[in-house]
Write a protein that binds this DNA or RNA. Structure first.
Length: 382
DNA sequence: AAGACTCACAACCGCCACTCC
DNA sequence: CGGAGTGGCGGTTGTGAGTCT
């Protein structure tokens, strides 16, 4: 479709804004509101296109934006939400009060991306570099699209909804299975056996959905299911997800600058607040228990999650593998500003990830869940 | 001291989705 | 229903400041 440009290109000023222009724009918007951005420049006496005015306002002049150095917590929030959302800067920005998407994007590109790279972590996949996957067919980027945490997040959400729907039918069953899964012995058995062990209906749902978040309804087939290649887009799942709008965050603490707890166990207490939806709460507890169990199983199950299975999306998705190393590095570095690139050097530069600090892995996992759960209910995430 | 280089950030561009007519 | 207008988003570029040689 042929489109007219948003504004006449001829005669319009480009480049950096002058204080005078800022003042004009500010004064006009304060008095009249921005109204139509297209019409604004003429009314405000600016030789700029409306788009430029809008950008200047939203990224710089708006009174409710914070400027200056990002705090450590903000950095952590960005990294963790980037792991969840990818380059969806506007969505990430909603979790960082007073920060603009442009600012976050710039900060990511100029600071955080480099820092992760130095730490030996692929900033695209959030996986340790040198990961087997990265070495196969040079498809790490494609794999990133396939396996991005976006899918993980959508899977989480859809699994939650599914859990609610199924709760009445399967409450007893799940309760029994959870008890079974809690057994370390069976966990080991599960790890040693490719065939789905006990209680894997939810587990499979998790894995399968994570691999194919766009599947709507129906029974989760999990391993071996018909998994298309999801192409890393939240736009799609946002509209497809049958998530009840109960807004977990409404009853939980707000993000508050990305405050991240480090005590994993405490995170479960948040679900105590879901008093209006006891079944939902119960299911969330169950699923979270499973997640923790899965997390613990990560290393022993690695052998079954091959790069091939990753690419083909056959259900064996190393959901937790990517956390390995990343969480360790991230937490170690984020808790130690001196090791960040603020001094230009990372102590962990070039590392390929530590080998199995379960607790930190769990903490990282909880951090992300905590962030998600504490997100505003009107977040575009949901 | 000056040119080359790097870095950080503001701003631009093109595309897309939504809304209105 | 389809086209036009508009705003929003993410990728990319431009530019100025700082650092290095």
């Amino acid at each position: 479709m042929a489109r007219s440009p948003c504004c006449e290109k001829v005669g319009l000023k480009k480049g950096p804004w002058t204080p005078e222009e800022d003042q004009k724009l500010l004064a006009y918007i304060e008095e009249h509101g921005h109204g139509s951005w297209r019409a604004l420049p003429a009314k405000a006496g600016l030789q700029r296109c409306g788009k430029s005015c809008r950008l200047r306002w939203t990224n710089y002049l708006r009174p409710d934006i914070k400027r200056g150095k990002f705090s450590l917590q903000e950095e952590q929030t960005i990294i963790q939400f980037h792991a969840l959302l990818g380059n969806r800067w506007s969505a990430i920005a909603t979790h960082l009060p007073k920060r603009t998407d442009n600012e976050i994007k710039n900060y990511w590109n100029t600071h955080l991306k480099k820092r992760l790279t130095k730490m030996g972590i692929d900033p695209v996949t959030h996986k340790p570099k040198g990961d087997t996957l990265s070495l196969v067919d040079g498809q790490s980027k494609n794999a990133a699209n396939l396996s991005h945490i976006t899918q993980w997040e959508s899977a989480r959400l859809e699994a939650e909804a599914r859990l609610v729907r199924e709760s009445k039918l399967r409450a007893n069953s799940v309760q029994h299975q959870l008890g079974t899964l809690a057994s370390a012995e069976l966990l080991n058995k599960a790890a040693a056996t490719p065939a789905p062990p006990l209680c894997l209906d939810v587990l499979k749902a998790w894995q399968g959905l994570w691999s194919n978040p766009l599947r709507k309804g129906g029974v989760i087939t999990g391993i071996g299911g018909d998994l298309e290649s999801p192409t890393s887009t939240l736009t799609t799942y946002e509209t497809a997800l049958p998530i009840p709008t109960i807004g977990i965050g409404e009853n939980l603490s707000t993000c508050e600058g990305g405050n991240v707890k480090k005590e994993g166990e405490e995170d479960w207490k948040n679900f105590e607040n879901l008093t209006h939806f006891p079944e939902y709460k119960e299911r969330m507890e169950n699923s979270m228990t499973l997640i923790t169990s899965l997390n613990d199983m990560t290393f022993s199950m690695e052998g079954h999650w091959t790069p091939e299975s990753m690419r083909t999306g056959n259900g064996h998705v190393p959901v937790f593998n990517f956390m390995e190393g990343f969480s360790d590095h991230l937490l170690a570095n984020s808790n130690n500003p001196n090791s960040s690139d603020s001094d230009g050097h990372s102590d962990n530069a070039g590392g390929s990830g530590s080998h199995g600090d379960y607790e930190e892995n769990k903490n990282y996992w909880n951090d992300i869940l905590n962030l998600v759960n504490s997100s505003p209910s009107d977040s575009p995430l949901f």
